[in-house]
C-alpha cells in the first residue's frame, strides 16, 4: 500500500498529463459536429458577446464592397422581377381562369443575422452568428448570404449560433448544374477559401466552363435553385467511375457580413414523413 502511494506521488505529474491528454483527444476525435455541446463552441454566451464587440469595429471595414455587391444583386433582381412579371402576364393571357401561384416559394422564411466570427484558414471552418434559439434559429437550418450558400446551422445558443461553413469537409451539399438534372455532392477540398469540388457527376455528360451550379433541393435544408458557384474546370475524381468539377464559389467567405437563415415551414412535416418511412421499413423487416 505504501509503495503504491509512493508510486502515485512519484509519477503524479504523468497521471495529470495523461488525464489532460485523454480529455483533449476525446474532444479532438469527436467526429460528429452536430453533437458538440454549446458551451464548448463559439455559440456560448461569453464568446458571442466578445465577438459582438469585435464585430462592431470590424463590420465597417468592407462596407464599400458589400454595398457594391448589393447594388449589383439588386439590379439583377429587378431585371428578374421585370422578366417574371412579363412571363406571368403572358401565361395569364393563355390561362385566363386559373389562379396562378407558385407554392414552392411560400414554404420558406428568412431570418436575418450578422456574422460575428468567421474563420477560413482552419482545416474545418465554422461561422458564428448573433441570432439564436430566441430568434427562431434551430439546428440544421440552411444559411445563405446575398451571393449564395454559406453553410448550415449546427449548434444553437440562446442568442448566438454556430454554422458549419461550406469551407468544412464535414459539410456536403447536394448540387446540380443549372439546366441539367444531373446532381452531385459538393465538398471543400481544404485548399483555398474560393473554390470547392463538385463530386460524383456522371462521366458521359459534358459541362461548359462558367455554367452556374445551384442547389438541387433534394433535402429540406435548402430550397431548389440557390446559386452556389460557377464551373471553373474539370478534374479527375478519386475513383474513376465519376468525374468532378472545380467550382468557383459565389459567396466571398473572407467578407461575410449579413446572412439569412432559411426556415422551412414544412421541415417538421418532411422529417416526420421520413421517420415514418424508416419505422415502416423496420416493421416490414420484422
Amino acid at each position: 500500500m505504501k509503495n503504491l502511494i509512493n508510486f502515485i506521488i512519484k509519477y503524479f505529474s504523468w497521471f495529470v498529463f495523461i488525464f489532460y491528454v485523454t480529455i483533449s483527444c476525446m474532444l479532438l476525435f469527436d467526429n460528429n459536429p452536430y453533437q458538440h455541446h454549446v458551451y464548448l463552441t463559439s455559440a456560448n454566451r461569453i464568446c458571442s458577446s466578445i465577438f459582438s464587440v469585435f464585430n462592431n469595429v470590424t463590420s465597417y471595414f468592407h462596407l464599400h464592397e458589400i454595398n457594391e455587391d448589393l447594388h449589383h444583386r439588386n439590379a439583377m433582381l429587378e431585371m428578374e422581377v421585370i422578366n417574371l412579371r412579363n412571363e406571368l402576364a403572358d401565361i395569364k393571357l393563355m390561362l385566363p381562369d386559373s389562379t396562378f401561384s407558385s407554392p414552392a416559394v411560400h414554404d420558406y422564411d428568412f431570418i436575418l443575422a450578422h456574422v460575428i466570427n468567421n474563420s477560413i484558414s482552419q482545416p474545418q471552418n465554422y461561422i458564428t452568428i448573433n441570432r439564436g434559439s430566441d430568434d427562431g434559429i434551430t439546428p440544421e437550418m440552411g444559411v445563405i448570404d446575398h451571393n449564395g450558400v454559406v453553410g448550415i446551422v449546427n449548434v444553437v445558443g440562446s442568442h448566438s449560433a454556430r454554422i458549419i461553413s461550406l469551407l468544412n469537409p464535414q459539410f456536403r451539399l447536394s448540387c446540380k448544374v443549372k439546366g441539367h438534372d444531373y446532381f452531385g455532392s459538393m465538398v471543400w477540398d481544404g485548399k483555398d477559401p474560393y473554390h470547392a469540388v463538385l463530386e460524383e457527376l456522371p462521366k458521359h455528360v459534358k459541362f461548359a466552363k462558367g455554367d452556374t451550379i445551384v442547389t438541387s433541393g433534394y433535402s429540406s435544408v435548402f430550397p431548389e435553385g440557390l446559386i452556389v458557384g460557377t464551373i471553373e474546370e474539370q478534374v479527375k475524381d478519386k475513383n474513376d467511375n465519376f468525374f468532378s468539377l472545380r467550382i468557383a464559389l459565389s459567396s466571398d467567405f473572407t467578407q461575410l457580413s449579413t446572412v439569412r437563415a432559411i426556415k422551412n415551414k414544412r421541415h417538421d412535416e418532411i422529417v416526420k414523413l421520413s421517420q415514418e418511412q424508416a419505422s415502416d421499413r423496420k416493421e416490414a423487416r420484422k
Partner: peptide, 29 residues
C-alpha cells in the same frame, strides 16, 4: 502539474473561441 493545468485550460479556451475542439488544448499540454 500547475503549469499543465493552466496550459490545458488556456488551450481549451482558445479552442472554444476558434472552434477547434481540443486541438490547442492537446498541443499546449
Amino acid at each position: 502539474n500547475w503549469v499543465m493545468t493552466l496550459a490545458f485550460f488556456l488551450g481549451l479556451t482558445i479552442d472554444i473561441f476558434s472552434n477547434t475542439q481540443g486541438m490547442n488544448a492537446l498541443a499546449c499540454t
